[in-house]
């Protein structure tokens, strides 16, 4: 245990870099997974709506595109904040 503490103290720079990389990876995964689920729901429901009412496909696709873009904004928040925080 003492060796680990000593190692952490002597290799503080590398430890900090490693923890930063792990934290950045967690942020990326979180920022991509949530909007990924959201986009799947948006597109799935849009396809269902187009199957039920093909004549309204234009309106459904318009709404779908905006819904995808809004959902993507969450991922952008995560990625940009990760870059800003990690410097």
């Amino acid at each position: 245990m003492l060796d680990l503490v000593t190692l952490a103290a002597t290799e503080a720079g590398e430890l900090e870099a490693g923890l930063t990389a792990i934290g950045r990876g967690i942020v990326y995964v979180g920022a991509a997974a949530g909007p990924g689920v959201g986009i799947g729901i948006v597109v799935g429901n849009a396809i269902q709506a187009m199957a039920r009412q093909p004549e309204s496909a234009g309106m459904v696709r318009t709404t779908m595109f905006l819904g995808i873009a809004f959902t993507e904004a969450l991922a952008l928040f995560g990625f940009v904040l990760a870059f800003i925080i990690s410097g």
């Binding site: 990924g36 986009i39 799947g40 597109v43 396809i47 995808i68 991922a75």
Partner: peptide
């Protein structure tokens, strides 16, 4: 469309 929406996002 579904594949492109999800793949394109990534």
């Amino acid at each position: 469309l579904l594949a492109t929406a999800l793949g394109g996002f990534l």
